[in-house]
């Protein structure tokens, strides 16, 4: 007779691929099941833990789905006003230049209301890291059109699809900041497959190292799904992301640090 599989029998140490990152708090994530935010959080915390930076880290949370990021990350954090995280991070880093400072922002926060703060922090070469989660929609407020919403994509505020003639085009802000001499490392990644998760972690490691080496601003975009906002199952949303988001927002390094 086969042994019955139970939670206890499965959750044995030898079966575990991942363990909970110690810098993630026990609080359950408030993100929708299937969303990439949780993975992005975990990767950043893993890198901070592995590089032994907890006592040196000050994070800045945005307004948007990750407004409550500080509930999940066991580090000192400041919650910034909508779009202002790069300015807040500038204030921190200028006054505490030896700390590790990062912002975690969505596309509405970073590429719409906070465009000015983003561009100028990049242009000044602030020695910080910006982690930018781009899912092409305003998730927190219920699925409205974002600066990165694709042409013809339906959202709550573009119910007939984004008409680029009247509503503009998806903003490729990552390519824009790569043009600025103040940025040292600019990359676009995703977290929808194990291979991509590993690549994203490497990118985060590289971004953190750039800051420790005082090379300037590192900008890591993570193209992510918003299955709730896109009104799809998680699997459908990942497929849709590959087919529709990646052609507009191609993955890979856009600017690599000078050695």
């Amino acid at each position: 007779m086969e042994e019955e599989l139970t939670r206890e029998s499965i959750c044995q140490h030898e079966n575990l691929v991942y363990s909970r990152t110690s810098l993630m708090t026990p609080k359950a994530l408030s993100y929708c099941p299937g969303c990439g935010h949780g993975t992005a959080h975990r990767l950043i915390m893993e890198v901070i833990e592995e590089m032994n930076l907890q006592s040196q880290t000050i994070g800045v949370a945005p307004v948007g789905c990750s407004v409550l990021a500080y509930d999940f990350l066991d580090i000192d954090m400041q919650q910034a006003a909508h779009g202002r995280a790069p300015a807040v991070a500038t204030g921190i880093k200028r006054l505490l230049p030896d700390k590790f400072v990062f912002t975690y922002q969505g596309d509405g926060d970073l590429a719409a209301i906070g465009t000015g703060e983003t561009i100028h922090a990049c242009n000044r070469g602030e020695n910080i890291c910006i982690f930018f989660v781009n899912n092409g929609i305003y998730g927190m407020t219920g699925g409205q059109m974002a600066p990165t919403t694709l042409p013809n994509m339906k959202t709550a505020t573009s119910p007939y699809g984004r008409d680029v003639v009247t509503m503009g085009y998806p903003l490729k802000i990552t390519e824009m900041v790569a043009m600025l001499p103040g940025t040292c490392f600019v990359t676009r990644q995703s977290v929808h497959t194990p291979a991509n998760v590993r690549k994203t972690k490497k990118a985060i490691q590289k971004a953190v190292q750039c800051q420790l080496d005082k090379k300037g601003l590192s900008f890591v975009e993570i193209v992510s799904n918003c299955n709730s906002g896109w009104k799809m199952t998680p699997l459908e949303s990942n497929k849709w992301m590959e087919e529709n988001m990646f052609p507009v927002f191609p993955l890979g390094d856009i600017k690599v640090p000078k050695s």
Partner: peptide, 16 residues
Amino acid sequence: ESEIASIHMVYGGAAC
């Protein structure tokens, strides 16, 4: 770059 950025830089520094 603006008064808005200025006050939020102040926010970041004050929180330290």
